[in-house]
Design a protein around this nucleic acid. Structure first.
Lengths: 240, 240
DNA sequence: GCTCCAAGCATTGCATGCAAAGAGAAACAT
DNA sequence: ATGTTTCTCTTTGCATGCAATGCTTGGAGC
């Protein structure tokens, strides 16, 4: 047995940060295939392209006024990063994992986030700790103000700060990748303000533990947070 | 007159150029790009293509008697899976992570393997436990017999069995992917028989803990094992 | 002799065209 | 009506060719 045939759809090499603003002329440098990859990933993560939605090479090529070649490249990369499923001769679709697999991914996310939190508790610099507290405070205000979209945005900054705090780029990467992959299956997450407040309380435990340098506590608090969050989600896995 | 002149649907249906039979008719199913991906991944993991080695599209295309298109596809996938680095307009090379990054990956591997071991301790079925013990026994014999290659092979089966025992396909996947990515940087791992014996002793602690259903113990033992293994490796990270 | 610039050139990126291969539909037989 | 078979046609896979991009190197100026 060898390691050569590792399963497809393993890991994205670079974090797939969903780009919001494509109008920015700063990123002129980008290739067409890359643009497509980011754009499609973005639409999938945001839910514009729902799980199961068909991704026809020719259609996409027309839609973006490019040839099929860069579209193929983009789709291939999305397949290996797990956001897209390619069924031979039946077209590619937005990935639609089984419930079993979704459970796997959520569990992995809980463990990975917990790992990051634990490492962050041990390793965060003073500056990073201040930064985390600042974001946490920002979230506290937002949890009152109650703008779910904005909350969601800052919430991501919160988690990203903890990933970075682990001082382990690779772990941060696979954690983010996992988060991105489950993103399409988290829907009405911050719709009600009750969830916002609860989330805030859970974050609080995480932050306190990190500030104390309490590795175990931080990991446990984060694990609990993710498990709870997961419980609130509706998990979509449309048939089969 | 070209084939364009035929209205759609009037083209001759039968194959005009009967493909010469490939050597092994069993793997007819596989696409060229996939073949290339597996072959290149294999050579990278085995060390035939050393980290930093250039991967010229045209060369590879010539070498495998295909056009650049499938080569590009294969390289792209290897990039997203982390085995290859693509530097814009400077060619692709076998991935050559910095020492910092290698440390990250090794740490991640230790944590992921520990996670798998812990979950396996809780979740492995009776059959799986028997299977693991069988592999462990096989390794014990091999550690005496002292065939490093064979030991390496069965050792992989050992770890894979634990991944599977976690009952979490996603975690198993990212753990394996991580193992694959660090593989090129593990060299003289089982060269000396002393290491084989030590490895066996460490495995033993892991197996005992798993059999007892001792989650913490299994995780700790596995983490220790990986950390030690890592200490024995020479970590190649050539410059920069 | 060193630095800066420019033109050449290797390499990548994309488009286009064609062929193979299934999947689905239609037609046929039972 | 249902199962089967053939046929069509969409979709994928690959090759080839051209264009653009920026690395590189050779030359000119300081």
């Amino acid at each position: 047995m060898t390691l050569d045939d590792f399963p497809p759809g393993t890991l994205p090499a670079e974090p797939m940060v969903p780009r919001v603003d494509r109008a920015s002329p700063s990123v002129q440098k980008v290739t067409r295939a890359e643009e497509l990859r980011l754009q499609l990933a973005d639409e999938i993560v945001r839910g514009t392209l729902a799980p199961g939605a068909p991704l026809d090479e020719t259609d996409i090529a027309r839609r973006f006024s490019v040839s099929r070649t860069p579209v193929r490249e983009a789709l291939r990369q999305l397949v290996t990063s797990g956001l897209v499923e390619a069924r031979p001769h039946r077209g590619a679709v937005v990935a639609q994992p089984s419930i079993e697999r979704l459970k796997s991914m959520f569990e992995a996310m809980a463990e990975l986030e917990a790992l990051c939190a634990g490492l962050a508790a041990e390793r965060m610099s003073a500056a990073e700790r201040h930064g985390l507290e600042a974001i946490h405070e920002e979230l506290r205000v937002l949890s009152y103000a109650g703008n779910p979209d904005r909350f969601h945005e800052v919430n991501e900054r919160f988690h990203n700060a903890i990933y970075a705090g682990s001082q382990n780029g690779y772990i941060a990467e696979i954690t983010l990748a996992t988060r991105v992959r489950v993103q399409p299956f988290r829907r009405a997450q911050f719709r009600n303000l009750g969830r916002l407040a609860k989330s805030q309380a859970e974050h609080d435990r995480v932050v306190v533990a990190i500030m104390r340098g309490d590795k175990q506590g931080a990991a446990a608090a984060m694990r609990a947070h993710i498990e709870l969050v997961r419980g609130e989600y509706e998990i979509y896995a449309v048939s089969v």
